[in-house]
Write a protein that binds this DNA or RNA. Structure first.
Lengths: 337, 337
DNA sequence: GCGGTTTCCGTTAACGTTAACAGCGTTCCG
DNA sequence: CGGAACGCTGTTAACGTTAACGGAAACCGC
């Protein structure tokens, strides 16, 4: 019992294969009753069009590649869900590729996706250079590209992400308003997100007229262990900070662990604000204040941008979607009541 | 600048298209120097084989469908990562489909995946009946199928999952050993996982000679809100339980929230054990004791089973992988010190 | 030097679908 | 009533790749 093909349905109905093909795709050339007859039989035989064959001749695969560093981060998982939810009803399917933040893995994945003739690509790239062979071959294949989360300057691509500078500003200003004077920042990776949040931090400090002690601006990363280590370093300083803006919620969670272990209180001794609003933030030991990035809106925005680019066969100019940050105050930073 | 095809490479080298095709696939008919020449030029031209065309003639897509209810649950996200990690090096690509626990969505996704001629399918199904049209059409297409997490009795499929009865037993026995006498259980969904854990709970209680008060066995679900609601109900009882085994960690997190809000202490008044060891469990207000299911081993096991079935073109008999549970004791259940 | 093997490489015909064009009755209009 | 216009259906040739077969050299043993 092989899968049913167009030919089978056609023979079964005594019509030509093209009639069936057209009826299925609502081609206007097909009479109303013929179409009805075909659709009925197709349903009965449980015919499924072969997307590979269809793709060969139309040049469209209805496949979209989503390349992200880490599915375990709820941030990317949420984006993935939002993208899928938007694209699936339009007939696209999403291939998710995990790069584990490795440039090489990313390149390999993209290369295979291009071989699969994906109709579009959404990438949260670990790369910082738009002149890399990866971006060149994407441009060469003329595959629409949308960058998310991390912006890559110079790439021929649309972008959907959060307003990172706004995030840093919002979080830092909040800490200052809560009375913190020695505000520290645990930095993220040296991508656009990390740099933007750092810049927002500096901006807020400057606006408040507070000096930025460079001792308080320490490298972290994306994981809770990085936050833990960075915080331990900060606590060893002669005058530990009384407020910390962390690059992300996992980093903040790690930092809070370090603070609690060292015997300090949150937010009494040190107030903490993270970013990302991961779904478990308010279940933590001390519910974590955070800046919501609107992940799902980023995902939806990226999907929209991509769809628009895919529908137009011709090159569309790059567009931008910046999702505004939203402060969520919980216990970890509430000092005034 | 269209993408490079075999024909282009062949013309460029002055050989036939088949020579290139064979050289690329290490066909023994190709001479050593010819192969080298071809490979070199292929690299230079950045040729990528067209998987659709290749798939048409070989009948293999090197696509694998992974159908799961919810990517946001770290359990499934971890499985997805483990599956990808195993399958990608073998040349497969994974299409992830989110069903949101909806049977209809699941069926639609599977139908499209079959149309894409996936080489294999891994499904954590929301369905309970192996006689549903979905399972029939999968069997009809002779696509190898591996079920994960939830077992569906009667389906022609391999299975990789956790030993749910063992999980329930382990967690409950632990609570009893910690001195709990009125042990409650917040149930999961009525799938194999929920039923298995319930059965393990009963088994452990019986072995300890404790009566199971049916008031203490309450319906929950998979989310933290369900756990919250269920726990509030339990606390209203004249004699609230002094230990609760929750179907999953999110449920447990919700339950702990309810307990804390009601002014009780954990584990003093009520001890809690969850299941799943989601990655934020030890960052919660009270670090959560849990039973680790070994998600990644489940994912790896599923991938292995699937690969074995896909390599053999003929039907292979269904196989089973049961990952043993592992108790992780944290603060939420540590009463004796 | 002649059958027979081996070693390489090319030719042809698929795979299932769709685009482009061709056909063939009807109807409509002058 | 001739021809154009229309409405529907069929025919042919692709799309890029591989399987199966075909064939020409080179090599070998006797």
């Amino acid at each position: 019992m092989r899968p049913v093909r167009l030919k089978d349905v056609a023979r079964d109905l005594g019509v030509s294969l093209m009639t069936v093909s057209r009826a299925l795709r609502n081609h206007p050339d097909i009479g109303e009753q013929t179409r009805a007859r075909v659709l009925k039989r197709v349903e009965e035989l449980n015919y499924q069009p072969d997307w590979m064959a269809r793709g060969m001749v139309t040049g469209r695969s209805y496949l979209v590649g989503l390349v992200i560093p880490d599915l375990m981060h709820s941030f990317f998982a949420e984006i993935a869900m939002a993208v899928s939810a938007k694209l699936t009803p339009l007939g696209y399917q999403v291939v998710i590729a995990n790069t584990e933040e490795q440039v090489l893995t990313e390149e390999r994945h993209v290369s295979v996706l291009l071989g699969r003739k994906v109709d579009g690509l959404i990438i949260a790239s670990a790369q910082r250079n738009a002149r890399s062979p990866m971006f060149r071959s994407i441009a060469g294949c003329k595959v629409p590209l949308v960058l998310i989360d991390r912006f890559v300057k110079g790439a021929e691509a649309s972008y959907a992400g959060s307003d990172d500078e706004g995030i840093g500003d919002l979080a830092t200003t909040h800490l200052i308003e809560e009375g913190c004077r020695r505000v520290a920042h645990i930095k993220g990776p040296p991508l656009s997100t990390g740099r933007g949040r750092l810049q927002g931090f500096r901006l807020a400090m400057k606006r408040a007229g507070l000096p930025v002690d460079e001792q308080y601006v320490v490298p972290g990363d994306i994981s809770d262990t990085a936050g833990y280590d960075a915080m331990r370093g900060l606590l060893k300083l002669p005058k530990p900070p009384d407020g910390v803006f962390c690059y992300s919620d996992p980093v903040a969670a790690g930092a809070m662990k370090a603070i609690t272990e060292a015997g300090f209180s949150i937010p009494g001794d040190v107030a903490i604000v993270g970013a990302g609003n991961v779904h478990y933030s308010d279940l933590l030991r001390v519910p974590l204040s955070t800046v919501d990035q609107g992940c799902s809106r980023i995902g939806e925005g990226a999907a929209d941008l991509l769809v628009r680019a895919m529908e137009h066969r011709e090159m569309t100019p790059p567009e931008l979607v910046l999702v505004g940050p939203r402060l969520i105050v919980r216990e970890s930073s509430r000092r005034t009541s």
